[in-house]
């Protein structure tokens, strides 16, 4: 398979959030600001790449019937590592993402890529697939977070764009996440069609 295609498909053609609609729980939950979205996206990217590497390396040794539990253990291990390392070295980000880090385990995006791609492809393709999908996920979360932050509290990446008093409160709250995601999906579908 063309490796460049393999990498870029995660951004537009098969973007996990906008096209595959995978991993929507963190996409809606943590995106109250662009920085949170980016942090969550990068944490997921790390887990995705590492899990893809390990799964593609051990795929030959795993009996078919226990492959899902094996994948989950691999993924959960990397998530826990991310959690501990983040708490130790980036406590500010850990405070902001807190609850959502353990939820990466059950992010169907990670298991989905392990099952659908890494268990069928070689190491290089799996790494590239994981990186592309993860960065596409990060891009989607950052876009959604930026949109909500801008419309909701008048800021972008923590910088004031216009006074907070004129922000639309709904975009800070959960319904704004759904509305924002809906419009982003619509726009991206239109762009993909063109």
């Amino acid at each position: 398979m063309n490796q460049l295609n393999n990498f870029t498909k995660g951004f537009f053609k098969e973007n996990p959030v906008f096209i595959l609609l995978l991993g929507l729980c963190p996409a809606l939950g943590v995106t109250s600001s662009a920085v949170n979205g980016l942090g969550m996206g990068l944490a997921t990217t790390f887990v995705l790449v590492m899990a893809n590497i390990v799964v593609s390396l051990i795929k030959g040794f795993i009996p078919d019937k226990v492959r899902i539990p094996s994948f989950i253990v691999v993924i959960a291990t990397f998530v826990t590592i991310v959690e501990m390392v983040m708490e130790a070295y980036i406590p500010a980000l850990f405070d902001a993402l807190g609850l959502f880090i353990p939820l990466i385990v059950v992010n169907c995006l990670v298991l989905g890529r392990a099952e659908a791609f890494a268990s069928k492809n070689n190491l290089i393709s799996s790494v590239i697939d994981g990186a592309g999908m993860g960065l596409g996920f990060s891009m989607a979360l950052t876009m959604l977070g930026g949109l909500r932050e801008l419309l909701g509290s008048g800021m972008l990446f923590g910088l004031s764009i216009y006074p907070e008093d004129y922000g639309m409160l709904v975009f800070v709250l959960a319904p704004g996440a759904f509305i924002g995601l809906g419009y982003l999906i619509a726009i991206l579908n239109r762009v993909n069609k063109a």
């Binding site: 051990i58 795929k59 030959g60 040794f61 795993i62 009996p63 078919d64 019937k65 226990v66 539990p69 094996s70 253990v73 691999v74 959960a76 291990t77 826990t80 590592i81």
Partner: peptide, 25 residues
């Protein structure tokens, strides 16, 4: 070639994976 899904194979695989995971954690 995948290993057959026999009971000893499955048990051994899971034990191996979980011990490596536990150790690294």
């Amino acid at each position: 070639s995948k290993r057959a899904s026999t009971l000893p194979n499955m048990v051994l695989t899971l034990i191996l994976i979980t011990s490596v995971a536990g150790g690294s954690l």
